[in-house]
Nucleic acid binder design. Sequence first.
DNA 1: ATGGTGGTCCTACCA
Length: 269
Amino acid sequence: MDISLVTWNINSVRLRMPLVERFVAEFNPDVLCLQEIKCRTGDFPEKPLRKMGYEHLAVNGQAGYHGVAIASRVPFGETFSREFCGKGDARHIAVTLGSGGDAITVHNFYVPAGGDEPDRSRNEKFGHKLDFLTEMRDWFSGSAKEHSDRMVLVGDLNIAPLETDVWSHKQLLKVVSHTPIEVEHLGGVQASHGWHDAVRAHIPPEEQLYTWWSYRAKDWRAANKGRRLDHIWVSPKLGGSCTAVEVVKDARGWEKPSDHAPIMARFTI
DNA sequence: ATGGTGGTCCTACCA
């Protein structure tokens, strides 16, 4: 089967439905994976999404903060979410797509940002971020595969692992999102299942690539102080099934934008 | 070195 998928930290889905509609009109993905929907499950804008053809919805919402959702034109098998770090945060949702031997599981994550200080003894949020990644690692090396070992993992992982994933490797070494300990923890998650970075398989690691630009820049495009915080990974059994990826940087410049750009990917599975 | 902007929901907290 051929499937197109977008991952996008939307930073309030209700506020940004016009952007979602514009994105769908231009790119027409089969599956939308959204993070930071910032609404309760019951407040998710189901009607406009159904109207656009996304009749299959899996929502893990929360009032005010976090929250993730998958909206799809392809029917789901099962849908499930896991609570990490026993905090009750809505930061994961997963669905299976397709059937039988073709079925794949799509995991959609919103990893904690981690606060400002990259020191867990002084900043609880940083500790939470590292613990969240450790729990992801242990889950994917163990029971997560019971659902399926044909998996796609997407989302805002809030870490830019490569030197070319940030505007200045040197200046960001002590900035949360690019510190060596975070990169090491993310590497642990990646190694736990032999995940392949589908985005960097298509866009060479030598090339600067960002998916997030701060709202605080006067002119985000001119300053271009971006980071690649959003990711698409595929499990070894789906290696090579991702046929195209594109960071839709234009969407960062649309009216009332999210601070994250969407990443669009195509798969032949 | 600091503060810069933008989201939720109404006051501070989070990114």
